[in-house]
């Protein structure tokens, strides 16, 4: 076997063996990885729309997915909205739950963020940030209360609290949610949310 042939044979064999191993590994892990992803979404939906017994994706766009959360009798008990947007440092991914009429936001959970640790990263903290998002009225859009207040009672029904020292991260979260709400409302008005039953 001359050199050229040898080179090609060796490369082909190495390539084939590699491809073979990877296909096996790829197939073995694919299901598990998909499962992990589903679990994460499921948990988030359960958190933001309490009492969800099942859910389905009504709209799936690049940075926005709207899930219909259904209760015991398969009735619509709320929407779980998954949204992605730019934060202070990098992308923020979150999920928030609303009632079926898009009047109120139940609560919010942050899925992915790379904000400044100790400051912007506090957006994942229940005490410091998330608790102020519970049961807010969203008809006129949400506004940020600056400077931050100490207790929930001090906030107007459509206000959310900012994090001292992390106003930009707080604002970014607000922007993502207000933007998604606009998009979801527009989709609803055009009947697009009846997609899956």
């Amino acid at each position: 076997m001359n050199l050229y042939t040898r080179m090609i044979v060796v490369l082909t064999v190495v390539g084939l063996i590699s491809g073979g191993c990877l296909s096996v590994v790829g197939l073995l892990t694919r299901e598990r990885i998909e499962l992990n992803r589903q679990k994460e979404i499921e948990e988030a939906i359960g958190k933001v729309v309490p009492g969800t017994k099942s859910y389905s994706a009504a709209v799936e766009e690049k940075d926005l997915t709207v899930y219909k959360a259904k209760g015991e009798q398969d009735n619509l008990i709320g929407y779980a909205i998954y949204a992605r947007g730019t934060g202070f440092q990098d992308v923020i991914t979150l999920m928030f739950g609303t009632d079926p009429n898009l009047d109120k936001i139940n609560s919010l959970t942050i899925l992915e963020q790379k904000e400044t640790p100790g400051l912007g990263a506090k957006i994942t903290d229940g005490q410091a940030f998330l608790q102020f998002w519970e049961n807010r009225e969203i008809n006129q859009g949400l506004t940020l209360r600056k400077p931050a207040v100490d207790t929930k009672e001090e906030l107007a029904p459509s206000e959310v609290n900012t994090i001292t020292g992390a106003t930009i991260s707080s604002q970014k979260v607000l922007d993502i949610i207000n933007l998604s709400l606009e998009q979801v409302r527009s989709l609803k008005n055009r009947g697009k949310l009846e997609g899956e039953e």
Binding site: V25, T29, I33
Partner: peptide, 23 residues
Amino acid sequence: ASYIVIIATFVTIADRFMAAFFP
């Protein structure tokens, strides 16, 4: 080229394994 393929194969295995079992 061969070393790279070999290394890349093991890296993919490690990466997939971690994604599946340690998300």
